[in-house]
Design a protein around this nucleic acid. Structure first.
Length: 592
RNA sequence: GGGGACGUAGUUCAGUUGGUUAGAACGCUGCCCUGUCACGGCAGAGGUCGCGAGUUCGAGUCUCGUCGUCCCCGCCA
């Protein structure tokens, strides 16, 4: 292959096939860099050695596909190219065959400059020839392979589940597939194989996994595609610890395949701690947590600064930001006002800490101490404003507001604190975390009811069982997330295996017996036939690959991704279909 | 659904206060070149300024609409 020849291959007769990456025509001497997936090798055509062959080489253009036969030879010391792996050798060609020509592509795979994503996606087959994309796709393969091998070695069976299944109204919007045989009826593409894997547990396949495509018809983000790949697994008789162990095991194997040694076990934190210390359920541990600063304020401070002493008081600290320019101060003020506004102005943000230091030097000094702040760190205290009345919900909202501010500031000053920069040390580059004890329910303000925070098959904490009716908001779930650098990589839980508890949960969700039966009847019935305790998790393979590739978007690790409007630019999907097709499916399209 | 950024040559971009013939780099074509490797030199081709209205004597530039791409909020159990 084009990337494999080394000095010790000198003298060998070789056949290379690949694409013309670059040509350097020096007149009676032509160099061609021939490229395949493994790299490039320099081919040499010398007019004095073979005029006809040299002329043939002169007609080659970028991305032509050729086969070349020749002898590997060591380069002279002064012509060695230290920048590439094959730089010590070149191939003196004796026979050249043009396998295919190429139109001039809209961009060249060998170009390194920035490229509009629209062009890249339209000509994805060209884009994928670029070294970075070849690397990313191979990386993804290696990661998936390592995970398969690890899980298989641990006794997990990879079992496929249907793509054409039943629509369930819970959760994300479904992609629907019309049935020709049953006009007016639809299959749904799975949002995840959740119920099937639980059924497999009931069926006695005690350790299941699947690297599987999932589909959700929701709006996209840089880290969200309508179809994405999950590493889905489930096992019988597990404690959460057993799930953590398995996940840590395969992540370790996956990261090793990508060249990084991870330390396990990962740290853990309850949901409650995460909210209080980071204001978010997926903390990025590369940045300092928010410090409680109540102790810094005297009663007199509170009155003078119009602060409610019973509210949370935390300080955001962003390291090494240094002095702010006037413009940055103004931006910080705008950010603070946005945060306050989003929280109906019960949150107060000290956007000008320097001012506070002037007005209240002692208090400010104590805040610095409580944050363990260095002199050039940016400190932004977030407090509750006096005279407002606060609920528990307000308190949590305040932490979340501070957490949002923390992330926004961290992103803004990323080039100063360097916390997001790779160091090469996996302990610093990859900050892992298990977030545990999520709340079982969230209150849906729009629909005025409780909804499942994870999904309705999640088991509540044994201790909180009695609060299901009386205080649903306080019920904790045996649910956990695995978080890497502030990105949620996976989410799982111990499931309910008893029908009576499952019924209670549906009841707490405001679902009647009939509703539950009509939606999940088959599943409730299955629960009645000797269901073992079981639990599992699902992780986003695309996100793992994205982080390992150092990319900012899933599109960099998915060969054929969709745009923010869920369009495939290469094949131009989706499209309308003809009337006959619709008729056969019994579908009529409503005109807008 | 909402907010923001962008759209000019094949590609990446510049284009001043609205002014006469819209530029650069890379790529492309031709010629020259025997040690290049992002080869070099000379010459050349290449434009519906996303699209549609409007303001104006005059629009790449201003206004409105529309389409597309990206980012964020909502949404995503």
């Amino acid at each position: 292959m084009c990337g494999e020849l080394r000095a010790q291959n000198a003298g060998e007769q070789v056949v290379l096939m690949g694409w013309v990456n670059r040509r350097r025509d020096l007149g009676s001497l032509i160099f061609i860099d021939l490229r395949d997936r493994t790299g490039t090798t320099q081919l040499v055509f010398d007019h004095s050695a073979n005029p006809a062959l040299h002329d043939k080489a002169g007609s080659l253009r970028s991305e032509f596909v050729v086969a070349a036969i020749g002898k590997v030879r060591r380069r002279d010391e002064e012509t060695i190219n230290r920048n590439i792996a094959t730089g010590e050798v070149e191939v003196a060609i004796s026979e050249l065959r043009l396998l295919n020509e190429s139109r001039l592509p809209p961009f060249l795979p060998s170009e390194t400059g920035p490229l509009n994503e629209e062009v890249r996606l339209k000509y994805r087959y060209i884009d994928l020839r670029r070294e970075q994309m070849q690397f990313n796709i191979e990386l993804r393969h290696k990661v998936a392979l390592a995970i398969r091998q690890y899980l298989s070695s641990q006794g997990f069976l990879e079992i496929e589940t249907p793509f054409m299944t039943r629509s369930t109204p819970e959760g994300a919007r479904d992609y629907l597939v019309p049935s020709r045989v049953h006009p007016g009826s639809f299959y749904a593409l799975p949002q995840s194989p959740q119920l099937f894997k639980q059924i497999l547990m009931i069926s006695g396949f005690d350790k299941y996994f699947q690297i599987v495509r999932c589909f959700r018809d929701e709006d996209l983000r840089a880290d969200r595609q309508p179809e994405f790949t999950q590493i889905d697994l489930e096992m019988t008789f597990p404690q959460p610890d057993r799930v953590y162990e398995v996940v840590e095991g395969f992540l370790k194997a996956a990261f090793k395949a990508a060249g990084h040694e991870l330390k396990t076990p990962f740290p853990r934190m309850t949901y409650d701690e995460a909210i209080r210390q980071y204001g978010i359920d997926k903390p990025d541990l590369r940045l300092p947590k928010m410090a409680g600063i109540r102790a810094a304020f005297t009663e007199e401070d509170l009155t003078a600064l119009n602060i409610d002493g019973s509210m949370n008081m935390v300080a955001i600290r962003i390291p090494k930001v240094g002095k702010l320019s006037d413009r940055e101060k103004k931006e910080l003020r705008t950010l603070a006002e946005d945060i306050a506004k989003r929280n109906k102005d019960f949150v107060g943000v000290f956007y000008d800490f320097v001012q506070l230091e002037k007005k209240r030097p002692e208090t400010a000094a104590k805040i610095r101490e409580l944050c363990s702040a260095e002199a050039d760190d940016l400190i932004v205290p977030v407090v509750g404003i006096a005279g407002k009345s606060f609920s528990e919900k307000n308190k949590r909202a305040q932490y979340i507001a501070a957490g949002e501010g923390r992330l926004e500031l961290a992103r803004k000053y990323a080039d100063r604190h360097d916390a997001f920069k790779r160091t090469g040390d996996p302990d610093k580059d990859f900050k892992w975390l298990w977030v545990t004890d999520f709340p079982m329910f969230e209150y849906d303000d729009k629909e005025n009811r409780w909804s499942a925070a994870h999904h309705p098959f999640t088991s509540p904490h044994e201790r909180d069982m009695d609060k299901l009716e009386s205080d649903p908001g306080a019920v904790r779930a045996l649910a956990y997330d695995v978080v890497l650098n502030g990105t949620e990589l996976g989410s799982g839980s111990i499931r309910i295996h008893r029908q009576d508890i499952q019924k209670k949960i549906f009841h707490a969700l405001g679902m009647t017996e009939e509703e539950a039966r009509s939606r999940f009847g088959f599943f409730l019935e299955a629960l009645e036939y000797g269901t073992p305790p079981h639990g599992g998790i699902a992780l986003g393979l695309d996100r793992i690959a994205m982080i390992l590739a150092g990319a900012d978007s899933l599109r960099e690790v998915i060969p054929f991704p969709k745009t923010a409007k869920a369009i495939d630019m290469m094949v131009d999907a989706p499209t309308p279909v003809n009337e006959a097709q619709l008729k056969e499916l019994g579908i009529q399209v409503r005109k807008q």
